[in-house]
Design a protein around this nucleic acid. Structure first.
Ligand SMILES: [Mn+2]
Ligand SMILES: [Mn+2]
Ligand SMILES: [Zn+2]
Ligand SMILES: [Zn+2]
Lengths: 142, 142
DNA sequence: TAGTTTATTAGAATGATTCTAATTTAACTT
DNA sequence: AAGTTAAATTAGAATCATTCTAATAAACTA
């Protein structure tokens, strides 16, 4: 788990993912992992970058998010048709989705249990289980 | 529950949804509900219609699917970014998603139990819980 | 440093979905 | 049944997140 107490070596993080530690990837990694758990869209991360005076193309933001996801640093979530969120928390957990605000919040993984599943076809295996609890009429503010 | 044993009065079904029983809506309702549970995309339903010699515009397919969903006749599912499925089974159940083939299959609702949920903000309520079990390396064939 | 591979980027392309505005149809009223 | 009105259908344009292309730039290796 990443946290702000011990410094993170972003260059090492990126290299371990099999990627070159470019200026863009290091900045994006910092934005994503420096302050703990986040759920962001590509557009959000992009405009956040620009707001911090760090120019990066939207294409690179998409490329980087997918590369980090493939490397296991991020998890991709689909809550709305036509928009992907990327989650910096890759451990087992599920989500509360506030339909009004679009906010995603974590639910500890042990709050949900899955019983018997139907038999899977030969060779098939579960790649992941996504559980999204959709909430309406709430603003997502604690 | 709709089934093929007792005939369904589609005109009544559509009227009860507060909609005029047009030729288009009656045909689409027949395709959706005549032969039991289905998980379809708008594009699938549209080309299926054309294949049956029944011309309907894609706009009307989208309109009808959303109207049926609002009326509680269908449930919209998001499994992939950028593509919505519509489920004719609106009772409590969850889904097995075959990532390779794109097939969706039902999982009985009582195979999954959700324990304690985090407290929700005032006024918030759960609109629904979506559980998608993603399967890879399976062709979806029984 | 020179050569090689990988990454970044602007802008075009894609594809599902939505929108617009014109035409057609269903339902209702004489 | 004909006329009237509200609702529905439609072709095509528009949207918008995402992906692609192909040219430039930066990172690594020898
Ligand atoms: Mn993706
Ligand atoms: Mn929709
Ligand atoms: Zn999360
Ligand atoms: Zn289903």
């Amino acid at each position: 788990m990443h946290n702000a107490v011990e410094a993170i070596d972003f260059a090492e993080l990126v290299r371990k993912a099999g990627l070159r530690p470019t200026r863009q990837r290091l900045s994006l990694a910092r934005q994503l992992f420096l302050n703990g758990d986040r759920h962001v869209t590509a557009e959000q991360l992009h405009s956040e970058s620009l707001g911090q005076g760090f120019g990066v193309s939207l294409a690179t933001v998409y490329n980087t998010l997918h590369q980090f996801t493939t490397a296991g640093l991020l998890r991709e979530l689909v809550v709305d048709a036509g928009r992907s969120y990327f989650d910096t928390n890759v451990s087992a957990h599920h989500h509360l989705y506030f339909e009004d605000s679009g906010e995603l919040r974590d639910v500890p993984g042990d709050n949900v249990t899955i019983g018997d599943l139907p038999a899977l076809p030969d060779g098939a295996e579960i790649s992941r289980v996504d559980i999204i609890i959709r909430v309406k009429n709430g603003d997502g503010t604690s």
